[in-house]
Design a protein around this nucleic acid. Sequence first.
DNA 1: GTGGTCTAGACCACC
DNA 2: GTGGTCTAGACCACA
Lengths: 123, 123, 123, 123
Amino acid sequence: MSWVLDSGRPIYLQIVERLELSIVSGQFKPGDKVPSVRELAVEAGVNPNTMQKAMVELERQGLVHSERTSGRFITEDEAMITQVREELAKKQIQEFMERMNKMGFDGEEIVTLLQKTMREGKK
Amino acid sequence: MSWVLDSGRPIYLQIVERLELSIVSGQFKPGDKVPSVRELAVEAGVNPNTMQKAMVELERQGLVHSERTSGRFITEDEAMITQVREELAKKQIQEFMERMNKMGFDGEEIVTLLQKTMREGKK
Amino acid sequence: MSWVLDSGRPIYLQIVERLELSIVSGQFKPGDKVPSVRELAVEAGVNPNTMQKAMVELERQGLVHSERTSGRFITEDEAMITQVREELAKKQIQEFMERMNKMGFDGEEIVTLLQKTMREGKK
Amino acid sequence: MSWVLDSGRPIYLQIVERLELSIVSGQFKPGDKVPSVRELAVEAGVNPNTMQKAMVELERQGLVHSERTSGRFITEDEAMITQVREELAKKQIQEFMERMNKMGFDGEEIVTLLQKTMREGKK
DNA sequence: GTGGTCTAGACCACC
DNA sequence: GTGGTCTAGACCACA
């Protein structure tokens, strides 16, 4: 048993993930201007370079694009956003099932529990 | 947007969770002797006080109990373990659904995707 | 007429290009160990971060991969190298033809001159 | 591996080359008046002395000549222009072939690729 | 020793 | 003001 106590995860990747979520969940809409690297860095309490690194990654994925002097913008390619949304979902599902499996729940049990939880949630 | 970058979560609680998992998943079995606080602290790379705090919490829950002179042991009350197992599962499920909801997936979609993932996993 | 006097080109991209050439031309062979970021940075007279940025780009392309503690290595996927070789060639050709066109040479003339140059080169 | 990162090439020579191109490509026509050194220097964002040096070189080559009081003019000797055009072309070709050779393409391959590129360009 | 990450602070080009 | 690049120097995990 050797543990990494949370968050050996690079900050810039945590930021990337948060921004991906903001985009696929519609908090940022296609075409929206993204706040400047410097602003975001201050908000997040990180160095501008770290934020920059995160933005570069988002750009590589095609979720945002930068206009030299006017800022960064969310892609207007909604198919791209949908695709990322599905990738993120898949990742969430796999991690979730891994954790559940580790606790000894098999697929059917998971589905059953999930449906039960949903039913309770509706009440 | 104001961010806490990962894990303001107290270390000892992260440890508690990991130990709970080890127990409900059967890595530690009912009646097993738990390694000494010092050993565990070294393995986890944390201060013994932190590990101690984690053990106290597990005791409070009833998952382990200490025999004054001979050390700590996993509870033999399997019902208790089962109960914790289900609580943990419920927590996982709720967190999972929260994250999925945030991405705009509703309950039905989640179940569908999950079943699809299971089918793929079997191949 | 507004000029950028050479090399507004980022250093890290110039480095990337040089390394691509070294790889596709066989100076670095598949599986070869790449000198450490720090060594390369000293040789090139740049900051290690700049060299790191270049290596990350090469990695993204798949031309090299890094082994956490033992260093970086040229990919052994020769098809990948061949592909990059062809991309680089295509780029060279297009830039060349653009320049020649700007001087008023059309395709046929270019080929003719090129063949003439080759014949002279052989003497 | 020891690198000179781009363009130790003197600025005035880079300018000379650009002006040669402007002439042989017909942007400046035989007999045209050349803008003043000051104007050109401002456009290019260089020191007037640097631009002056470039003009002197062009004069040496015979591509422009200065009329003491009325300014500088492009030569009307079209044969001279043609000659320079061919020299520039030759230089381009040689540099191009050098680069391609370095990547391991031989003459025939180069011609083949070039013709292929031309065919694609026409579509 | 390796790669990877992060910070702090600077300069540039563009508009 | 924006994004982009670069330097200098630090710390970490891994083995």
